[in-house]
């Protein structure tokens, strides 16, 4: 691990394109090498890991290797609001077909919160805004599968958000997740969610896994309003939904400083 870390770090002392990063990481971390090196549970990973690097003091630093620099995702779910008919079959499919129960509040595609009054929420004058009480435009929020620096992943003090092959989705490792909810506050688009109270026993974070490249929400959409596409960086185009608390931003910056 140590050698590979050094090799990657040296080679990355330049502005690398995302493709270059992916290629570089692939070069050093073949699936086989990684499995040998980290004993991950059968999951292929394309990442750059560092040992014992807690991103935040908040939850205590993890002593297991954690991913910091990660390859870009290969795919993403892209929503088309014009086509969305607001049925929320995607929300039901996301949770039920992956977890065996229905719970829209933790779905990784989020429609309900924008359904009636749009992304801006209920405001006076709502009849001219988005949503079913307005102009019927319903925006389906999906995970951007952010490029490095991945806000949710870097913010997690437990290194629980990992990048997983085959499509490099940013995925919660529920064995590491303690349900602290920091990622929920860290994602500018509020795309992760807890299935129970903060820090309670059994509470885990949920976020989009891209269903190994065949997302259930996309299959379930009766209007073709969700598409699975090659990844592209949407993080610069889509306005943030929430303000990430300064404490989390500082912790992430601390993590960044380890390499930059």
């Amino acid at each position: 691990m140590k050698e590979i870390f050094t090799a990657v770090a040296r080679e990355l002392k330049k502005d690398a394109s995302t493709d270059e990063v992916t290629a570089l990481i692939r070069k050093h971390f073949t699936r086989r090498q990684f499995l040998v090196g980290s004993s991950a549970l059968g999951l292929g990973v394309a990442t750059f890991s560092i040992l014992g690097c807690g991103a935040s003091g908040a939850g205590g630093a993890s002593e297991t290797p954690r991913q910091v620099f990660v390859a870009n995702a290969l795919g993403m779910v892209v929503a088309e609001p014009t086509l969305c008919v607001g049925c929320r079959r995607c929300e039901a499919a996301c949770v039920a077909y992956n977890q065996g129960f229905v719970q829209p509040s933790i779905s990784n595609v989020k429609v309900n919160r924008n359904l009636l009054f749009g992304v801006l929420g209920v405001t006076k004058g709502f009849q001219r805004g988005d949503g079913d009480y307005g102009n019927f435009r319903v925006v389906q929020d999906t995970c951007r599968q952010c490029p490095h620096p991945v806000p949710c992943q870097l913010a997690c003090p437990h290194g629980a958000i990992e990048v997983i092959a085959p499509v490099n989705a940013r995925v919660v490792n529920i064995d590491k997740c303690v349900g602290c909810g920091i990622c929920v506050a860290a994602c500018p688009w509020a795309m992760t969610s807890l299935n129970g109270p903060v820090n309670a026993k059994g509470t885990k974070s949920n976020k989009c896994t891209l269903c190994n490249g065949n997302p259930e929400c996309v299959q379930a959409c009766p209007a073709g309003a969700l598409k699975y596409m090659a990844w592209s960086d949407k993080t610069k185009d889509i306005p943030a939904r929430q303000v990430v608390p300064a404490s989390i931003q500082l912790a992430v910056a601390d993590s960044c400083a380890k390499c930059h």
């Binding site: 065996g100 129960f101 719970q103 259930e216």
Partner: peptide
């Protein structure tokens, strides 16, 4: 406003 879950008895793959 409901944030809870509803159990589906069947296996998730069967249900899908």
């Amino acid at each position: 406003l409901g944030t809870g879950s509803l159990k589906i008895a069947a296996d998730k793959k069967v249900w899908a």
